Structure formats: structure tokens, C-alpha cells
Simulated assay, not measured.
Amino acid sequence: MSDSQRSALVTGATSGIGRATAKKLISDGWTVFAAGRRQQQLETLATECEQLPGRLVLVATDVTDNASIDALFSTVEAAGGVDTILNIAGGALGAESIADANIDDWQWMIETNVLGSLRIIQKFLPMLRAHGEGTILNLTSTAGVVAYEGGGGYNAAKFGQHALTGALRLEEAEHNIRVVEVLPGLVKTEEFASKRMRGDESKAANVYAGVSKPLTADDVADVCSYAVNLPHHINLDEIVMRPVKQAAQHKLIRDEGTL
């Protein structure tokens, strides 16, 4: 597979950062296998990408289900394989304290963020090793390196994914697999906060209230694309990105009168 025939699997491609990253790579001329749970959103993505130079293959996939991942692998393998995996599927659910946390929420976050990435990686590692210049990019979060009140479950999941990524980089260097981690801070997307707050749009809006320029899905997609488009010998191990207004996890500047 030459540089002009780069091919990637992008999970979480139905919305937010995953969707934006799939579109960005297709714009760059890649073949992209867009994996996500919602077929309708995948078909909408296909319509949006019709005039772009790359090639899009839609694969309805649930990263928490082994049979679904087996089917995904079969589709990718039959279509020529990939050299790059971008694990972007994930999310947060709930903002309760640990004392009041819902175990089912934690279970979902760990299944989706940590074990979902693990399942994809284990399934596709032999393909990436055989390619000779494979890349795995895991989208984690600044929540994976700094804990905060009300974030215990998401912290636990993203800390776990962060640790998985670090161990993978050490283990797979001998197979010439590049392992990249992108850790965004505050990103405003159409679904992340809404889902976390169980559809309470007022609470979701409060997450971003007064922050005039949070990161966007396109911002993160640009960084992910840049990292995997670099010559293979260059590894951006960990890329922490935040809006300027978020100087640290605990310091967010909210401007008065800004919605």
C-alpha cells in the first residue's frame, strides 16, 4: 500500500470527532472505513463525502460486541485492509459524584472507551503488523490524566484508555507500529454533553457557557489527520490540545455575556 493509497478504520464515525475525522481523511484522499452504530448517520456521512477525493466504506459496527467487530474485520480484509486505526468511539455518561454514581454508567463508559478500543486493537494488530508500517491513534482526553469532581467514571475510563495506549506503544514498537494519543480538553460537539447529561439540554449548555471558543470536532479532526499523515517514522506520542480559555483542567475562563 503506497502513501497515495493510505487506508484507515475510523470508529465512532456517526457523530462528533469521529465523523469529522472520517471526513477529513477522505478529503485528504484516504480510503476510510467508517464504523459506527447508527446506519442512518453513516448514510448521511456518505452523502456529505460524495464529492471528496477519497473512498468511503460504511460499516455498521458496535465496538462493545465481538461478533460485530468480527464482521467489521471481514469487510475491511475483503476490501484490501488498512494501515491505520483511529479509535474514536467513546463518550461519557453521567456527572454524579462517586458516592452517587450509577454502576451501569461506569460499565458503559469502560466497555466503550477502554474495552472497545482493546477489541479493535486485538482484532486488527496482525493486519497492521503484516503491513509493516501500521499506525494506531487512540482518542483519549485530558480527563485521562487529571481527575475532577463529577468525572470519576469518565476519568476511570479515560485513565484506563490512556494506560492501554502507553503500554501498546512500548509493546508494538518492535513491530514498527506507531501509536499516537490525542488528548483533547473542552470540545463542543452536537452530542457529547447532551448524552452525558441524559438529554438535559440546559445542563449540557452549561458545560460550555461563557466559553467563546471551545475546541470543535473539526479542530480535533485536523490534529488527528495531521498526526497520521506525517511520515511513518515520526510519532507524536501524546498530543494534549485545549482551547486557550482552558489553561488547565481546573481553570476555564468563562466570559460574561457569552453564550
Results as ranks from 00 to 15, higher is better:
Ala22Met: 05
Pro243Leu: 07
Val146Cys: 07
Asn155Val: 15
Ala205Asn: 14
Met1Ile: 13
Pro184Cys: 12
Glu50Ser: 15
Glu133Thr: 11
Gln5Glu: 15
Arg37Glu: 04
Ile239Gln: 04
Pro53Ser: 01
Gly151Glu: 09
Asn138Thr: 05
Lys158Cys: 07
Lys23Phe: 08
Gly16Asn: 00
Thr165Asp: 05
Ile88Met: 09
Glu133Gly: 02
Asn176Cys: 07
Trp106Phe: 10
Gln51Lys: 13
Gly90Trp: 03
Val207Arg: 10
Thr75Glu: 06
Glu181Ile: 13
Glu191His: 14
Ala92Val: 13
Ala147Asn: 12
Gln122Met: 02
Ala167Asp: 05
Asn155Gln: 11
Ala221Glu: 12
Thr189Trp: 05
Ala217Arg: 06
Met109Asp: 09
Ala204Met: 11
Pro126Asp: 03
Glu201Tyr: 06
Thr189Tyr: 07
Tyr226Asp: 04
Asp3Met: 04
Lys23Val: 05
Thr21Phe: 02
Ile85Asn: 00
Arg19Ala: 08
Asn87Gln: 06
Thr189Asp: 12
Gly185Leu: 01
Cys49Trp: 00
Cys224Ile: 12
Arg169Trp: 03
Ala143Gln: 08
Asp222Thr: 14
Lys195Ser: 06
Thr258Trp: 09
Asn235Phe: 01
Val145Thr: 14
Gly116Arg: 01
Lys23Leu: 13
Gly16Trp: 00
Gln246Trp: 03
Lys203Gly: 14
Val114Leu: 15
Glu77Cys: 03
Asp222Ser: 14
Ser74Glu: 08
Val182Leu: 13
Gly12Ile: 02
Ser2His: 09
Tyr154Met: 08
Ser2Glu: 10
Asn138Arg: 03
Pro214Tyr: 04
Leu215Pro: 08
Thr84Met: 00
Ser141Gly: 07
Asp237Gln: 13
Gly80Lys: 10
Thr21Glu: 07
Tyr226Phe: 12
Arg55Asn: 10
Asp28Pro: 06
Ala167Leu: 03
Val63Tyr: 02
Ala204Val: 14
Met109Cys: 05
Leu86Cys: 12
Leu42Glu: 01
Thr11Phe: 01
Phe192Val: 15
Lys23Thr: 14
Ile98Leu: 15
Val10Phe: 01
Gly160Met: 12
Thr84His: 00
Ala95Cys: 13
Gln107Lys: 10
Met127Leu: 09
Glu238His: 14
Val114Phe: 08
Asn235Ile: 07
Glu181Trp: 05
Phe159Cys: 14
Ala193Pro: 10
Asp105Tyr: 11
Lys123Phe: 00
Pro243Ala: 06
Gly199Val: 10
Arg198Asn: 14
Val240Phe: 11
Leu170Ile: 10
Glu149Met: 14
Thr75Asn: 02
Arg129Tyr: 01
Arg254Ala: 13
Met109Glu: 05
Gly90Tyr: 02
Tyr208Gly: 09
Trp108Ala: 15
Ala34Gln: 06
Gly150Asp: 06
Ser194Thr: 15
Asp255Trp: 01
Gln107Arg: 07
Arg38Pro: 02
Glu238Gln: 12
